[in-house]
Write a protein that binds this DNA or RNA. Structure first.
Lengths: 132, 132
DNA sequence: ATGGGGCTTCCCCCTGCTGGAAGGTCAAGA
DNA sequence: TCTTGACCTTCCAGCAGGGGGAAGCCCCAT
């Protein structure tokens, strides 16, 4: 199977597939003409990677998860640990964004948004202006 | 004033200050020895940039905001527009993260997290396993 | 044989810095 | 005066996670 076929079947773009080979996530064979030669197992792995990435797992997480996916003797505890850590990272990001959002909404609300130059947003960003 | 002083006063690291000069956000003069020569206005601008970046504005947003900050004839409408657009981006990111979080929490909850290999997280990431 | 699509490698681009190497400068202390 | 050591300079490389595009094969249909 060529890269285009596996891209269509897995939903992962050819460029990304080549990149994943570069960093050692998948190891397709080569046909005699130099083309990468994929099989159904590669399609599964790539779809797996696509879904993991869509859930925000880093490439390194994906590497770990893919190894566990392939390991018949894995313990679900190992998988859960990776997912829980990732969940914590997500929660951290959400908190950070929520804090930004709170500050920004407040400033936006206070800003008249008219033709005059006075602006609480600019003022908040300029500590030195608070003394003027 | 040397870069170290302005870094301490503005809270922006020297490396970042040099980068901001590179991309044209600030334009310090040069002393005879080749050292960058900053004044108080640079400290203000850098502090402004630091706060804008902390609120998640992109560098391009910062460029715009800095221009408005310096423009005595700005209209607060212009500032507000930039902030509102950024607010929308933040809300989008939060939504995306919340969706990931929902999916992940559910999977984590369903995973036994013991020594057995069966794992709903792996199963969810592997569409082909649902037919087995 | 020719045209079009696919495949290959290669290198640069993106965001927003950060680290490090190699070298110049400057002020203080022995 | 000399020598540290802390500054400063430029340039180069790299992080994540690919995307865009060039130059050049390959293969199939007409």
């Amino acid at each position: 199977m060529n890269i285009g076929d596996v891209a269509r079947q897995s939903g992962v773009p050819p460029k990304t597939i080549r990149y994943y080979e570069d960093i050692g996530l998948i190891r397709p064979k080569r046909a005699e003409n130099g083309y990468r030669d994929f099989n159904q197992s590669h399609v599964h792995k790539l779809a797996f990677l696509g879904r993991a990435r869509a859930l925000g797992f880093t490439i390194e997480d994906c590497r770990t998860l893919l190894a566990l996916y392939e390991d018949e003797n894995r313990e679900s505890l190992q998988v859960k640990a990776v997912a829980e850590e990732h969940l914590r990272q997500i929660e951290e990001k959400i908190e950070k964004l929520r804090s930004m959002k709170a500050t920004l909404s407040e400033l936006v609300d206070k800003c008249a948004g008219d033709h005059r130059p006075d602006c609480p947003i600019i003022a908040d960003l300029s500590p030195e202006l608070s003394y003027k």
